[in-house]
């Protein structure tokens, strides 16, 4: 286990941001912390990165205690922040050079490593331009590159695709997957995008109000909800009959929409539709992590706009 937390807790004046979390993360995997904004993901990550001290409990990162050996922890990790943190007035290459100095990358290796990571994130041709002129996606890529420069065993990515358009997001996902595969880095990401956790992570912890509500691989999490899902708009559904069917796990009606979770839809959809009532609309699909989240926490995940991030950029520009 490359990361282990022991009852790690962070309390602020009025709220408990992280509440006694015990977590083990395997080496070489992509691990996701999924939850709505304010769930405590970033706080947990910041504690693991030794940026803020825990109120209670502790954690071991790469075998080092975050309280006792913060220096060694920092040397083992790379971190990509939620808010942009490269220097706009410097070029991409200069940012990387500074990072190499800060992390004590040996002199004879600096050049080569910088070239390597630039290549890895496809920024080699823009390396000598000021970061000011980069797009949001390029900045993220630069920060990914920077996080890798000192060859950390663990890479923390805090909302790596926040505020990016879908196409750029897909690109970043591809980079992250490649990093994990080619470099064998353990990657911990926080996200509130369900698809991101689903597409990237080997294991996902669903976190809400500072606690872990579920922890498994995305497919296992979805299996727990059920294999298939039928959503139908029905005027007066015959729910009791549906619930009595042997392959139906759960059936609920809310605002005129019926949600039925069942072990296998294909073979049974005919029977369900015939007995459900006057169906005006029907949708058959596999459950998503959103459904998992909904079932575990009893609420939809609040969808955040990218404004928070855009604001930070706006402020950065007004320096």
């Amino acid at each position: 286990m490359i990361i282990q937390t022991f009852g790690i807790t962070k309390r602020y004046k009025n709220i408990t941001a992280v509440n006694h979390i015990d977590l083990s993360i395997e080496e070489g995997k992509i691990f996701g912390l999924l939850g709505p904004n304010g769930a405590g993901k970033t706080t947990l990550l910041s504690m693991l990165a030794t940026l803020i001290p825990p109120t209670e409990g502790t954690a071991k990162v790469n075998g080092y205690d975050i309280r006792k050996e913060p220096g060694k922890v920092r040397a083992s990790i790379g971190m990509v922040f939620q808010t942009p943190s490269s220097d706009e007035i410097l070029t991409g290459r200069e940012n990387l050079y500074l990072h190499a100095l800060l992390y004590g990358v040996p002199k004879e290796e600096r050049e080569k490593r910088i070239e390597d990571v630039l290549e890895l994130v496809d920024l080699a041709d823009r390396a000598n331009d000021l970061v000011k002129t980069y797009s949001g996606g390029m900045r993220r890529r630069l920060e990914l590159a920077r996080g890798l420069l000192h060859r950390p065993k663990i890479l923390f990515l805090d909302e790596p695709t926040l505020g990016l358009d879908p196409q750029t997001r897909q690109h970043i996902w591809d980079y992250i997957k490649r990093l994990s595969k080619e470099q064998g880095v353990t990657i911990i990401i926080t996200t509130h995008y369900m698809e991101e956790a689903d597409s990237l992570c080997d294991r996902v912890a669903i976190i809400d109000y500072g606690e872990i509500k579920a922890l498994d691989s995305p497919s296992m999490l979805k299996m727990k909800v059920g294999k298939s899902m039928i959503k139908a708009r029905v005027e007066s559904p015959n729910l009791d009959y549906i619930r009595g069917l042997p392959y139906v796990i759960k059936a609920e009606a809310k605002d005129g929409t019926v949600t039925i979770i069942l072990s296998e839809a294909g073979a049974h959809i005919q029977e369900i539709l015939c007995n459900l009532g006057n169906v005006s609309f029907v949708e058959l699909r596999e459950p998503t992590l959103n459904d998992v989240f909904l079932q575990i926490t009893g609420k939809e995940m609040r969808v955040e706009s990218a404004e928070g991030w855009a604001e930070v950029y706006a402020r950065a520009g007004s320096r």
Binding site: A49, T50, L51, R74, I77, M79, F81, T83, P84, S85, S86, D87, E88, L90, N95, L98, H99, L102, R146, V312, R315, A316
Partner: peptide
């Protein structure tokens, strides 16, 4: 913001 946060970590 900026590079300094990176320095602190």
């Amino acid at each position: 913001i900026d590079f300094f946060k990176e320095v602190l970590v």
